[in-house]
Simulated scan of single mutants.
Amino acid sequence: MKVHIVTLSGRFVNTKVKCGNGQNLFLMRLGAGARTLGLKSKMFISEEQGCLEGERISLLQFKKSLVDRSNRLSSWTGLDCCKWKGVSCSSTTGHVLKLDLQNLQATYDDIGRYWDNSYYCNNCLEGEINQSLINLTHLDYLDLSLNNFSAIKIPEFLGSFKNLKYLNLSSSGFVGSIPTHLGNLSSLEHLDIGIHEVDGPNFNNLATNNLDWLFGLSSLRTLDMSGISIGHSENWLNPINKLVSLASLNLAFCNLGTTNPLSHVNSTTALVWLNLYENYLDSTILFWLSNLTSLEYLSLG
């Protein structure tokens, strides 16, 4: 930890420095002679905080549950997890804020082998998503997209991150029902659980009978649920209509059919980009579409 105590009019101000273990390190006051130390006469207090031990252990437990064929997480050693690839921390508290493990090296060779039963992606992370991640209580960004978590469900505990603003689980081989617990992410602004490409690697095989859990995502600005089967819900449009901050919506390939008519279209909607390609919509959708006054892009297919 590096601590810089800087002067005000040549004097050290009383400064309390908190260590990573929560203890106060010291209080200091020096006289005007401190100018001889060459410190600038302006107020500046900063602290560089390294990785918190409890969060480092949680990340190592998470790593242990993964299969990492290409050693993408080879940097995950040593005491300072803030220096590990894909991990970003607060410079003042040391809390892990961002975990970005998107597979940026998915190739078209991998895509071509997707439909082969012997398929695996050389650059993908596989295995289980350890619940130890729940200890990263300050996490606001999580990206696990384009990996290969085939045949496992989206973990319910992902709905426990109260500070999460960005969640991307697209094209990572998740299966089963979408956990309604995701509706607890009241700070979430970006949610992507759809398909990265129609024939992309590790197509998610997800479904949901209703979208009522979206009511809890009042801060949502972008939503991608492309490729998710929500065709059995006749009330899918109502929760979408209540997302007043939503600017981008992708519901392509969702088997959407008839929807119950809306009694009121939210006049404050910010929707600019809308993809409803390859669905089975009827004329009941037109009343909603005609009231989207900010819309710039629309695909119905």
Score class of each variant (00 low, 15 high):
Val96Pro: 09
Lys162Pro: 00
Cys89Phe: 11
Leu104Asn: 03
Glu53Gly: 04
Ser91Ile: 08
Trp84Gln: 04
Ala34Phe: 14
Ser171Gln: 08
Phe174Ile: 02
Ser58Thr: 03
Gly78Ile: 05
Gly33Pro: 04
Leu133Ile: 03
Gln105Asn: 11
Ser91Arg: 11
Gln131Lys: 12
Leu104Arg: 10
Leu136Asn: 01
Arg69Tyr: 02
Leu30Tyr: 00
Pro155Trp: 13
Asn163Ala: 13
Leu139Phe: 05
Tyr108Ile: 12
Lys83Tyr: 03
Leu60Pro: 00
Cys124Ala: 15
Asp68Glu: 01
Gly159Phe: 02
Asp109His: 10
Asn147Phe: 07
Ser132Arg: 00
Leu104Ser: 04
Ser74Asp: 04
Ser75Phe: 01
Asn123Cys: 01
Arg35Ile: 14
Glu48Gly: 05
Arg72Ser: 08
Leu37Asn: 09
Gly112Arg: 08
Ser150Ala: 15
Glu128Tyr: 13
Ser75Tyr: 00
Ser150Phe: 14
Cys124Pro: 02
Cys89Tyr: 10
Ser172Val: 05
Arg113Gln: 13
Arg113Gly: 10
Gly31Phe: 02
Gly54Ile: 09
Leu146Trp: 05
Val96Ser: 13
Lys64Ser: 15
Ser118Leu: 13
Cys82Phe: 12
Tyr141Leu: 11
Thr92Ser: 11
Ser70Met: 00
Lys153Thr: 14
Ser160Gln: 11
Phe149Lys: 08
Asn117Lys: 14
Leu125His: 01
Gln102Asp: 00
Leu59Ser: 05
Asn130Tyr: 12
Arg72Met: 03
Asn103Cys: 05
Leu37Glu: 09
Val96Phe: 11
Leu133Tyr: 03
Val96Thr: 11
Thr77Trp: 02
Thr77Asp: 10
Trp84Met: 06
Glu53Ala: 15
Leu158Glu: 01
Glu47Val: 15
Leu66Val: 01
Ala32Phe: 10
Leu146Gly: 00
Ala34Ser: 15
Cys89Val: 09
Leu169Trp: 08
Gly33His: 07
Leu164Trp: 04
Leu167Trp: 05
Thr77Tyr: 06
Ile154Phe: 12
Leu59Glu: 05
Ser172Glu: 06
Asn135Phe: 04
Leu139Thr: 06
Phe174Glu: 05
Ser118Arg: 15
Cys81Val: 08
Leu37Ser: 07
Lys64Tyr: 09
Cys124Gln: 02
Thr36Gln: 14
Gln49Glu: 06
Thr92Met: 00
Ser75Lys: 07
Leu133Gly: 02
Asp68Trp: 07
Leu164Asn: 03
Leu136Tyr: 03
Ser58Asn: 07
Asn148Pro: 01
Gly54Val: 09
Ser132Leu: 02
Asp80Leu: 06
